[in-house]
């Protein structure tokens, strides 16, 4: 039994996104949360490249992926800056301590 390339890649995409979401659901460390976001983005980016490949527009797919890389690197940067500031002001990166806003 062989698994086709698109199937493999789409499983990889969903796998990366799934693992990222699982991390968001379970982790308590803010830096880990940002790691999880990066994993999510890798998956989505791969989906765009795959889509380009499947429709014969690899170049277009790549072009989109570059924009995604830029955007999400910036998200990561802002996230890390927030994390640094959280550490400075609150003193911990534990998400359980970031629950003062509730109800």
């Amino acid at each position: 039994m062989t698994i086709s390339i698109p199937t493999t890649v789409i499983i990889m995409v969903l796998g990366l996104i799934g693992i990222g979401i699982y991390a968001l659901l379970t982790t308590r460390h803010l830096i880990k949360v940002i790691v999880a976001l990066q994993l999510l983005v890798k998956g989505a980016m791969l989906a765009l490249v795959l889509a380009g490949r499947l429709t014969g527009q690899e170049e277009l797919g790549q072009s989109l992926a570059i924009t995604v890389i830029i955007a999400d690197t910036i998200v990561a940067v802002i996230g890390m800056a927030l994390a640094v500031q959280v550490r400075r002001v609150i003193g911990t990166l534990d998400l359980r301590s970031l629950t003062s806003l509730r109800r």
Partner: peptide, 16 residues
């Protein structure tokens, strides 16, 4: 996802 077909490449990366 498997039904999609490979088409023609019509532009270079730089152009796009």
């Amino acid at each position: 996802i498997n039904q999609s077909e490979t088409g023609q490449v019509y532009a270079t990366f730089r152009e796009i």
